[in-house]
């Protein structure tokens, strides 16, 4: 009896080893194709959001979500040569049957260039209509569910049934996608705000030099009184205060 169990276990293990080995081979073959599919999908989505885009820069570390149920997966600063065009954010939130991933684009003027639903596993024919290119929430104008966000401003309400048309019989999905778009676009807005301040600072100093000069002078005089150990941090500190002074 004992021998029999060991024998069965060994045979089972042999089958498992063969199965694992063959799966490893298939994985090796398909893995680059799956990765390039994902990369192609990202590139073409960015291109659709910003047709004039030529490059993008990863800015994930600089963008944070204001809502813990919406997770920012990826964030890109999309550029045409060196001029920034806007921000694209890939965000994930819980939808009806699992996570839904959306990609949104926000222009420098804070308008949404488009929303793409990259991944979702909601009910085919209902929630999955959110990702369908032939399902129109506005049949007369042929506007798809994600299509209706195009042209909205990030300061809009984003409320289902007031300014967002829901998908019939898929309220949970509609709300989840809308929330993801709202939170992600707000994050994009914050980044653009910070970027505008960062890049606007040199030109702002000349315009607001009178106001900016004083806190900066104070900061340096205050800092000079402290120990010289923090000398390396001093140049950054007044500069930060200069920008905040200019924004007011």
């Amino acid at each position: 009896m004992k021998n029999n169990i060991i024998k069965l276990g060994l045979i089972l293990a042999a089958f498992a080893v063969v199965a694992c080995a063959s799966l490893a081979v298939v994985y090796q073959v398909t893995e680059p194709a799956i990765a390039s599919q994902a990369q192609d999908a990202l590139n073409s989505s960015l291109k659709e959001l910003f047709p004039e885009a030529t490059s993008h820069e990863d800015i994930k570390g600089a963008v944070s979500s204001s809502d813990e149920t919406v997770k920012i997966e990826e964030a890109y600063l999309v550029k045409n040569d060196l001029a920034p065009l806007g921000v694209a954010i890939k965000a994930t939130t819980a939808s009806y049957k699992g996570p839904a991933t959306v990609l949104i684009g926000v222009r420098l003027d804070r308008s949404i260039t488009g929303v793409h639903i990259l991944e979702m596993s909601d009910t085919p024919g209902l929630g999955a209509n959110a990702a369908s290119s032939t399902y129109y929430v506005d049949k007369a104008k042929k506007i798809t569910f994600p299509g209706q966000f195009t042209g909205k401003y990030i300061t809009d309400k984003f409320e289902v049934k007031t300014d967002v048309i829901p998908i019939t019989a898929a309220t949970v999905t509609s709300k989840a996608i809308t929330k993801a778009v709202k939170v992600a676009s707000a994050s994009a807005g914050e980044y653009l705000q910070a970027m505008a301040l960062g890049t606007a600072a040199p030109s702002a100093i000349s315009g607001a030099s009178q106001e900016a000069a004083q806190p900066a002078a104070e900061a340096t005089s205050g800092a000079s009184a402290t120990s010289s150990g923090s000398a390396t941090t001093q140049p950054a500190k007044p500069a930060a205060e200069t920008t905040s002074g200019a924004s007011q």
Partner: peptide, 24 residues
């Protein structure tokens, strides 16, 4: 005595192959 787990291993292996190929 061990036929059901072996069946499941074989079926799971082919299903994973289909899944990966379809994804790719």
């Amino acid at each position: 005595g061990a036929r059901l787990p072996i069946f499941i291993i074989i079926i799971a292996a082919f299903t994973t192959i289909v899944d990966l190929v379809m994804k790719a």
